[in-house]
C-alpha cells in the first residue's frame, strides 16, 4: 500500500495547498480517487498528487524566530507622516515650497 499527498487550488489564482492524504496503488489511481476523496464538494479548480515518500518535511523549529527581522517586513518602516513633514520643512527652508503648489491629481492611484 502506498499513500499519496493531495494538493489543490481553491481558485485559479490561489496557491496549491496541501489538503490531505489518500491510499492508492499508484499515482494514476490516486489521481482518479482524489477527485472524490477531497474535491467532491467543489473544494477546488485544480489538484495534484505526489507519493508520500517523496514528500519531505522540515523540522518546524527551524522557522522559529528569536531575532527581530522586521527590517525585511513592512512593519520595519513607520513614521512616514513625520518623515514627510520633515522633508517639507527642509524644502521650505531651501525655498522650494513652490513645487508643492503645482497642480497634481487629487488621489495618487498607484500608491501602495
Amino acid at each position: 500500500m502506498a499513500t499519496f499527498e493531495v494538493f489543490g487550488r481553491r481558485k485559479w489564482d490561489a496557491p496549491m495547498e496541501h489538503v490531505g492524504i489518500l491510499h492508492a496503488p499508484d499515482a494514476e489511481a490516486a489521481l482518479v480517487l482524489a477527485r472524490e476523496t477531497h474535491f467532491r464538494h467543489d473544494e477546488g479548480v485544480e489538484y495534484a498528487v505526489c507519493p508520500s515518500e517523496h514528500f519531505h518535511t522540515q523540522d518546524p523549529t527551524l522557522l522559529e524566530r528569536q531575532v527581530d527581522i522586521s527590517y525585511r517586513l513592512q512593519s520595519g518602516y513607520s513614521g512616514f507622516r513625520d518623515k514627510r513633514e520633515a522633508a517639507r520643512q527642509a524644502a521650505d527652508a531651501r525655498g522650494r515650497s513652490d513645487l508643492r503648489e503645482r497642480p497634481v491629481p487629487r488621489r495618487h492611484g498607484g500608491e501602495v
Partner: peptide, 16 residues
C-alpha cells in the same frame, strides 16, 4: 500612473 504617484511625492519633498 507612475507620474500620478511619484511626481507629487517628489514635489512634496522639494525635489524638482
Amino acid at each position: 500612473e507612475w507620474l500620478n504617484t511619484y511626481v507629487p511625492k517628489m514635489w512634496d519633498m522639494g525635489i524638482d
